[in-house]
């Protein structure tokens, strides 16, 4: 887990509005990045990230163990992102345009673009596992699927990423999956 905030801030955020605002500002980039890894539209990703942060703000008073915060935060972010992507796909009845990606490094562009080309479930599993560092049981809880299904999605994702990266991402963008 590379991302962290002070434990005291998490504890204060349960009852202190100022601390909660600080906490939301601190976690926002991390939550947004989970969403941008899963949602194929920047505006929808921002929307999902806002929804996730609002859920975190609502739920933090009932979070008894500050140490459980990160897994809880990533699970909420992942769930909000998946829901947002499903909603977006229901409303877009045509193949998506490529997601505009602004980035500094070609390698990052390739990998992020490749992740976005994965179907939704493997994409969410990859982001929550490799970006958020969640265990497969935690990813399973976030995605409402059994753990073996998560491991299966990860296997498919690794295989597909290998193909995409070796093919230089020349394939066509996949249309939204029906959730």
């Amino acid at each position: 887990m590379n991302f962290s905030v002070e434990r005291s801030l998490i504890e204060r955020a349960r009852g202190d509005r100022e601390a909660l605002n600080d906490l939301i500002e601190r976690i926002w980039p991390e939550v947004y990045r989970v969403c941008i890894g899963i949602v194929r539209d920047r505006m929808a990703a921002e929307d999902a990230a806002q929804e996730a942060c609002a859920s975190i703000a609502r739920g933090i008073p009932s979070l008894h163990e500050a140490g459980a915060f990160y897994g809880w935060m990533y699970r909420i972010a992942g769930r909000c992102a998946v829901d947002a992507e499903k909603t977006r796909c229901r409303n877009v009845h045509q193949p998506e345009r490529d997601v505009p990606i602004v980035d500094d490094t070609a390698a990052s562009i390739d990998l992020h673009a490749a992740i976005l080309k994965l179907p939704l479930a493997p994409r969410a599993a990859v982001v929550l596992t490799y970006f958020a560092g969640l265990r497969s049981s935690e990813v399973a809880a976030a995605l409402h699927v059994p753990s073996p299904t998560v491991r299966f999605h990860l296997m498919l994702a690794r295989r597909r990423l290998r193909e995409l990266l070796s093919a230089g991402l020349t394939g066509t963008q996949e249309a939204c999956e029906r959730a």
């Binding site: 590379n2 926002w28 980039p29 947004y32 990045r33 989970v34 941008i36 890894g37 990606i101 602004v102 980035d103 500094d104 490094t105 390698a107 990052s108 562009i109 990998l111 992020h112 992740i115 990859v126 982001v127 490799y130 970006f131």
Partner: peptide, 11 residues
């Protein structure tokens, strides 16, 4: 690499 790729995304 996944962490690097997503962390480089401007929020």
């Amino acid at each position: 690499n996944v962490r690097a790729a997503l962390t480089s995304q401007p929020a």
